[in-house]
Design a protein around this nucleic acid. Sequence first.
DNA 1: TAGATTGTTAATCGATTAACAATC
DNA 2: TAGATTGTTAATCGATTAACAATC
Lengths: 212, 212
Amino acid sequence: MGKKVSIAVIRRLPRYYRYLSDLLKADIKRISSKELSERMGITASQIRQDLICFGGFGQQGYGYNIETLYSEIGKILGVDRRFTTVIIGAGNMGNALANYGNFKKRGYDLIGIFDISPDRVGKVINGLEIMHMDKLDDFIKKNKVDIAILTIPSQNISEVAERVAKLGVKGIWNFSPQDLHLSGNVIVENVHLSDGLMVLGYRIRESELKGV
Amino acid sequence: MGKKVSIAVIRRLPRYYRYLSDLLKADIKRISSKELSERMGITASQIRQDLICFGGFGQQGYGYNIETLYSEIGKILGVDRRFTTVIIGAGNMGNALANYGNFKKRGYDLIGIFDISPDRVGKVINGLEIMHMDKLDDFIKKNKVDIAILTIPSQNISEVAERVAKLGVKGIWNFSPQDLHLSGNVIVENVHLSDGLMVLGYRIRESELKGV
DNA sequence: TAGATTGTTAATCGATTAACAATC
DNA sequence: TAGATTGTTAATCGATTAACAATC
């Protein structure tokens, strides 16, 4: 386990996991790196190289047993372990995430939703009553929250981030438009949806220019 | 303009754009690659290398004029041009995206929202009345829609994708859990929010193991 | 056994970083 | 002019791809 796995490989793991889940549902028992590569649009070499980082779960002449591979990648991704999460900011994005059922299936339990607006506090989203931010600190400490999902406007994002970091949160999933750089050992994943849209726009224009 | 710009560079552009926007708001006039690199957490070399792909907008001994650079990157990303978009699927994610104001500012005009559920059709989101999917084809053709934003469950995702592709849509922003591989010259950006969450989970576990 | 396909090593490719001359 | 910082080339690093021996 000496060599550490590159982030590029890690980021492909959930993708493998999704494809394997679909294959499993389709009741397919085994698959070769070649066939999987065609389905996913990447090279077979890359698949084998990626999997070997974690020990390589295949068998020569046979390929990969889908059930095994699925479960192994699940273990690597920590699907077996539970993470507790809270959503901070019960606006549209907070709502959308709170109602997204797949997270629970993957080991992420939403146990609290917070907002500062009196209009929202007290309302129920997906079975959880929205709490006021005043109660955030106690809640995080008492429930040992692992991950804070930030879906608040950017103004006070770093303030809130540092607050939850101090309270012992291990990871922050940041949806605010502003990047978060946190010192210490809190892991941050910044999500910028509009970035993706702008890249899409760029690529459309590029392809139009080529087409002319 | 011979060498084509790598996708890695393209994907960093919206990030530069955001940082420059903040600097602009803070009324800062110029910045060196070194200072920007410290703010963004990347190397100064990379910034200069990235910008040079598009001509290099700096000046020796001075750095970069923020207003100029901001506007140039905006042009590269096509902020000056308008894209028309429709959202297909008025569930939670569709709602969240429809209410997200920043897209319009960046040149993306939402002009239609569609759903198949009678409960939703007719309701108004952000000033737009949700239309039934039956009207989708006519609407896309009549309004020359550039981008379809897919926020529907995965079951019939590729069916809908091919349908809008045939109608002349140039890009698809896909939020369904299933990857979309489209032939032809429709540009696809797949978004998988839960992938990011799982990567966050992995990185948390990894850091816990290191910490022990 | 013969065929298939992995695990693994080597080659290639591309992206990032470092260095420095050009120049504002 | 001296100092600063870019544009640009060269060096390094890492990731992807190709090739093939091992082996099921």
